[in-house]
């Protein structure tokens, strides 16, 4: 089933927010085609009526009291940021303003 084209690679790269050069695109056409082709093996199995495993431990929701506990101090939260103004993370322009 899986036959990956360059257009597929470009589309998925867009979803994943990756910019790929031409050589990498070509390489991924081959690699993803091979790997997804191998994954098509699962179609040999009839899984009608089988529940998907969402979690291996049959877990129930975990509730706790809504109590205020210490959180990360702001300077610790900001200490690894590429750019801050001391209070906020700074990023390049988000909206085009003309």
């Amino acid at each position: 089933m899986a036959k990956i084209t360059k257009a597929d690679v470009e589309y998925v790269a867009g979803l994943a927010q990756l910019t790929l050069d031409e050589a990498t695109k070509e390489r991924l056409v081959g690699e993803m085609g091979d790997i997804l082709g191998y994954m098509d093996k699962l179609n040999e199995l009839d899984t009608t009526g089988i529940e998907p495993t969402m979690h291996v431990l049959e877990m129930t929701n975990v509730f706790r009291e809504d109590e205020v506990t210490p959180s990360l101090p702001r300077d610790a939260a900001l200490m690894n940021a590429p750019k801050t103004d001391g209070e906020y993370f700074l990023v390049p322009r988000i909206l085009d303003t003309e």
Binding site: L36, M39, L42, N43, L45, T47, I50, P52, T53, V56
Partner: peptide, 15 residues
């Protein structure tokens, strides 16, 4: 559905 959900179902069979 064809990949992720299918794999989650096969995971149940493996388990």
């Amino acid at each position: 559905d064809a990949y992720y959900l299918k794999a989650q179902k096969v995971r149940s069979l493996i388990r």
